[in-house]
Amino acid sequence: MLLALALLATYVLGLLALIAGVTASSVTLIVLGALVTAAFPIAVATRAWRDRRR
C-alpha cells in the first residue's frame, strides 16, 4: 500500500513539474518532470521483473 502511494505521489509530482515547465517555457523543468514521472515506475517494474526471473 505504501509503495502504491509513493508511486502515485512521484507520478503526480512529475506531472506537476511538467505542467510548470510548459507554463514557464522551461526546458529544464520539462526534462526534470519527465525524468521524475518515468524514473520511479521504471524502477518498480525493473525490480518486479528481476524478482520474477529468480
Rank of each mutant, 00 (worst) to 15 (best):
T23F: 08
A48E: 06
L29F: 13
A9F: 14
L13F: 13
L35T: 09
I19T: 02
L8A: 15
L16I: 02
S25W: 08
T23Y: 12
P41L: 04
R52E: 04
I19Q: 05
L2C: 01
R50G: 02
T37E: 08
R53A: 12
L3T: 06
L32K: 03
P41F: 07
R53S: 06
S25M: 15
A24R: 15
L32Q: 05
V36H: 03
L3K: 03
A9P: 02
D51C: 00
V44I: 14
T46Q: 08
T23A: 15
A9E: 12
L35S: 06
T46R: 13
R47I: 12
I42H: 03
A34T: 12
V31N: 02
D51L: 14
T46V: 14
L29C: 03
L18I: 12
V12Y: 09
V27S: 12
I19K: 07
R47C: 04
T28F: 12
A39T: 06
T28K: 10
A39K: 05
P41I: 01
A6E: 10
T10P: 00
V31R: 08
G14P: 02
V22W: 10
A34V: 07
T46E: 05
L7G: 04
L8W: 10
G14D: 00
L7C: 06
V36C: 00
Y11N: 10
G14M: 01
L29I: 01
A4R: 14
P41M: 05
A4K: 14
R50E: 06
L3C: 02
A45G: 03
L7Y: 04
A20L: 14
A4N: 08
I19R: 12
R54D: 00
